[in-house]
């Protein structure tokens, strides 16, 4: 029989109860939000700080169906929902933020390859490891003025911010993974007549790949953080740009859906990486 025993490590709550418990905090959050919103709207029917469900719905509709700027393409009145969506604010912002995000993701690949070399080849380790250990401790955001000089204020400074922010951590992480590959595996590969690059790419890289993907999953949030920082400082479109602009006039009715949308996107990327990892590396446990 299940007793209510939150401080019992050996407790076995039944399934239904566990499910219900996991929903509690969500319900509390939504409840608190609604309560606050209702209270504030009783006082000021036009309150924007904690928009009501109705306002949120209007905000979502305008984000999803209406163009961002006055001068953007405006769909004709009889346009289909799909066409409106294609030219909507959220579509435009997601596309431009997504572009920056995926370019940076792509730029991380050479760094991962470099990390495999650093972990495996003593000469690379000697040349790069200390530098990246040092560089990892640099707070990337503080380099922004330098990034502006080096990359201008367009796309590249934002992408560089993400890469500089995330790459050293990734490099150190992957280097550790490579060093954790048992020496036996490397010796064994050499006795099977593998050359250096066989060992690097066909033994070690293959083995750390699932861990690299996991590390990337953990780094998604920092990447998003850096992207947001970049977009909030200088941009003309993007998800964080919109949030920054909406803040100017307390557009919480648009900001909140945007925040949830970003959370959903991050979850989806994380989920698909996890799925890919499981499909591609059935041998990898945990």
């Amino acid at each position: 029989m299940t007793n209510l025993s939150p401080f019992d490590i050996q407790a076995r709550p039944n399934r239904l109860l566990a499910q219900a418990l996991s929903a509690v905090l969500f319900v509390v959050c939504i409840g608190l939000y609604m309560q606050t919103s209702i209270a504030r709207h009783r006082e000021n029917p036009e309150d924007r700080v904690v928009p009501s469900g109705h306002q949120l719905l209007a905000g979502v509709r305008s984000a999803v169906l209406e163009p961002a700027e006055e001068d953007d393409y405006i769909a004709p009145d009889n346009a289909s929902t799909w066409e409106r969506l294609r030219h909507s604010m959220i579509w435009k912002d997601t596309a431009s933020s997504g572009k920056r995000f995926f370019i940076s993701l792509g730029l991380l690949i050479p760094f991962v390859v470099l990390a495999v070399h650093i972990g495996l080849f003593p000469w690379f380790g000697a040349g790069f490891l200390r530098f990246f250990l040092f560089f990892d401790k640099i707070v990337a955001l503080s380099l922004l003025p330098i990034l502006f000089i080096a990359f201008g204020i367009d796309e590249w400074s934002k992408i560089a911010l993400i890469v500089i922010g995330v790459a050293p951590t990734m490099i150190l992480d992957v280097t550790q993974m490579v060093k954790a590959v048992p020496q036996e595996q490397i010796v064994k590969a050499f006795t099977l007549d593998a050359n250096n690059f066989d060992v690097a790419y066909r033994v070690v890289f293959r083995q750390v790949m699932p861990q690299v993907i996991n590390s990337l999953r953990l780094n998604l949030k920092p990447m998003m953080l850096f992207l947001f920082a970049g977009e909030m400082i200088a941009a003309s479109d993007g998800l964080a740009y919109r949030i920054a602009i909406m803040r100017r006039h307390m557009g919480m009715d648009v900001i909140l859906p945007y925040v949830l949308w970003v959370a959903l996107l991050l979850f989806l990327i994380d989920f698909s990486l996890r799925t890919i990892n499981r499909r591609l590396h059935p041998w990898f446990q945990a």
């Binding site: 001068d71 502006f148 201008g152 400082i233 003309s236």
Partner: peptide
Amino acid sequence: QLGKLHLINTSDADIVAAFLNNRSN
């Protein structure tokens, strides 16, 4: 010509450095 302006939203904290350091701005 108002619609043809190409605006870049730049935080006031960084606008001086960002503008002065790159002649293409």
